[in-house]
Simulated scan of single mutants.
Amino acid sequence: MTTIDDLAKIGTSTWLDDMSRERLESGNLKELLSTKSIVGVTTNPAIFAAAMSKGTAYDADIEKLKAERAKADEAVYSLAIDDVRDACDVFQEVYEKSGGKDGRVSIEVDPRISDDGEATIAQARELWNRVGRENLMIKIPATDGSMGAISEALADGISVNVTLIFSLERYKQVIEAFKTGIRRAAANDLDVSKIHSVASFFVSRVDVEIDKRLEEIGSEDALALRGKAGVANAQQAYALYVSELENATDLPEGTNLQRPLWASTGVKNPDYSPTLYVSELAGPNTVNTMPEKTIDATLESDTLHGDTLSNSAEESAKVLEDIAAIGVDLDDVFAQLEREGVEKFVDAWNELLESVSPRLV
């Protein structure tokens, strides 16, 4: 038994926030499953940019795509789809044993189309069909333009990972989009028990931005609040999940509740515990997607102290109230983080295309 097994007993599944062909071909991904209790994988444009820009694992396929005169974006998705399909196969047994909750592998739609709902749902359908695995999840960003695509995808029976959620207001919209999609899936006579979804709430980036603003204020009270916003914000999201989904009476029979997923859980400030966003965000029916460094820190630690989500609503609300009262504009923080989140993924995607393009000529 490991600390991650203990985390699973509390109710939090651990997914790896990283993927590469090297992990697949070396057997490393399979080894992580068996030795570190990992039960899923998430990817994003930055992860694929890092994977495809290193080593020689993709050289043969790139040469083949060059002969086929593939464009850069077509080539990148072809490579990513092959990796994701193979990863789905690695986790197939976990998927079956967990009844579809875990054993999941996520692939994200092109971040450049996040404001175009029609293009987003078209690509979500294409990726779902091309990967062709039931344990796939399509990542769609929680932006104004993509909200309708989330419902559309679920209505089609596509399992969805809604990503880049920072604020409670945005999360409320995501929950409504989930409910709408599941109801439509049931109306379309689909088996809703086979549709799964997670809502990826970002954590460490909240602390980075709010800590910076608290330091600019500079008072003793402001500085005392550093490192508390990310956890409090996520704990408030969990309270919202309980009230809006666990207590919902208007969902079709057999619905799998959209689980909160804690993303960006590697601490950015070395003064904070490396397991801060693990031990303080453990609770029923949740997922924590971690970089391997955080997974290893969790395995080496004994800092779990049970369910830290179920009874956290009052205290976490007070933390956010104190931060707002001292002069931090939380609405501005969350709007900035969402905008920057999309921009970072677009930048990573563009860098990847720029690195692959010359190799296709």
Rank of each mutant, 00 (worst) to 15 (best):
I138N: 14
I138D: 13
I138P: 10
K139C: 12
I140D: 10
I140K: 11
P141C: 07
A142Q: 05
A142G: 14
A142W: 03
D144K: 15
D144S: 13
S146L: 07
M147D: 00
G148E: 05
I150V: 14
I150H: 03
I150K: 05
S151E: 03
E152V: 00
E152R: 15
A153V: 02
A153C: 12
A153R: 12
S159P: 09
V160N: 12
V160R: 14
N161R: 13
N161G: 11
N161A: 13
V162D: 05
T163F: 06
L164N: 11
L164E: 06
L164S: 07
I165L: 15
F166D: 11
E169Y: 01
K172H: 14
V174M: 06
I175E: 04
I175T: 03
A177P: 02
A177E: 03
A177L: 01
T180E: 13
G181K: 06
I182Y: 03
R184V: 05
A185E: 06
A185D: 02
A185N: 06
A186S: 14
A186H: 08
A187M: 10
L190N: 11
D191A: 14
D191L: 08
D191P: 01
V192I: 13
V192Q: 09
V192A: 10
S193A: 15
S193G: 09
K194W: 00
K194F: 00
I195V: 14
H196F: 15
S197M: 12
S197A: 15
A199L: 10
F201I: 14
F202R: 07
V203C: 10
S204W: 03
S204D: 04
R205T: 05
R205S: 08
R205I: 03
D207I: 02
V208G: 01
E209K: 08
E209Y: 02
E209Q: 06
E209N: 05
I210F: 03
D211C: 02
D211T: 04
K212M: 03
R213C: 04
L214G: 04
E215V: 02
G218V: 11
S219G: 05
E220V: 14
D221M: 02
D221K: 15
A222S: 08
L223P: 06
A224R: 04
G227A: 06
G227C: 08
K228W: 01
A229V: 06
A229F: 09
G230V: 06
V231E: 06
A232V: 04
N233M: 08
Q235D: 10
Q236W: 00
Q236I: 00
Q236H: 00
Q236R: 15
A237G: 14
A237P: 00
Y238H: 11
Y238G: 12
Y238P: 12
A239R: 00
A239C: 01
L240H: 06
Y241A: 05
S243D: 15
L245V: 09
E246K: 15
A248P: 05
A248K: 09
T249G: 07
D250I: 10
D250N: 13
L251R: 14
P252W: 11
E253D: 13
L257R: 15
